[in-house]
């Protein structure tokens, strides 16, 4: 459960001497427990925004704007605190699944917990964590796939593992970057069902980025992004297809 404020966010990449402004003053208010879709064409800066929100990257040093979770500004955190913040607060889902190929489905799911808890903490709670990983994977329809390697799974299955992995630490915020971008329509729709299920009673805040209006429709609210700015806000389900 977390309310997110994004204020006048600027991000500029430097390509040699050329400055490429990608975010040019993005402002967003996301309510706690809201499922927000950010709709935008490829290259409009959606991923960049998501990385900034997850504390993986920082806005421009000069008047780059502000991101705050429940009033706590990310910019004030040290590098270590940002790592910790990611561990405890945020789950990431990526377009290309990004599973570790050597690890099984169950191990991939548990990776976030291992990183969060460290050896002793993890070993102490290993049993409980395995149970919740199994439960998550069960909800994602993967109960019979626990020992498989990612290479043995279909794209949709892989992405469901990625969702389970993002949720193992039960983070208040889930950031999903084109989660259906690599899936066919039917599989994508099934995946969004999983999202719905996984949203759970905990009122998780979900920020989902997509270029597909149909996918965006599933969210509570949709904002459109173009040229590094939020252009338009519409309630979910009312975006023209």
């Amino acid at each position: 459960m977390s309310a997110i404020e994004v204020e006048n966010l600027h991000k500029t990449y430097k390509l040699g001497k050329v400055e490429v402004p990608v975010l040019r003053g993005v402002s967003l208010d996301i309510a706690s427990g809201e499922w927000l879709a950010i709709l935008g064409a490829s290259g409009s800066g959606k991923s960049t925004l998501l990385h900034l929100m997850g504390g993986l990257d920082r806005p421009d040093a000069k008047s780059g704007g502000r991101i705050a979770y429940d009033g706590r500004a990310l910019g004030d955190l040290s590098a270590n605190d940002r790592n910790q913040f990611r561990r405890d607060h945020v789950g990431f889902v990526f377009q290309f699944y990004h599973l570790v190929p050597e690890l099984t489905v169950l191990e991939n799911t548990l990776l976030g917990a291992m990183i969060r808890l460290g050896r002793l903490g993890y070993l102490r709670e290993a049993g409980k964590l395995r149970d919740s990983a199994r439960e998550l994977l069960g909800k994602a329809g993967l109960s019979h796939r626990l020992g498989h390697k990612p290479a043995q799974l279909s794209g949709g299955e892989r992405q469901r593992v990625a969702i389970a992995r993002a949720l193992i630490n039960d983070p208040p915020v889930l950031l999903a970057d084109e989660p259906t971008g690599n899936l066919d329509q039917k599989t994508g729709a099934e995946l969004l069902d999983v999202f719905e299920t996984m949203r759970g009673k905990t009122e998780r805040t979900i920020v989902m980025v997509t270029h597909d209006p149909k996918v965006a429709q599933r969210a509570d609210r949709v904002v459109e992004m173009a040229d590094g700015l939020i252009r338009q806000t519409t309630p979910g389900g009312s975006v023209g297809v």
Binding site: G54, L56, A79, V90, L111, R116
Partner: peptide, 14 residues
């Protein structure tokens, strides 16, 4: 893998 681990909250030294 390194990107994933970092996204999951692992630190640079980790």
């Amino acid at each position: 893998d390194i990107g994933i681990l970092r996204a999951l909250g692992a630190s640079g030294p980790g």
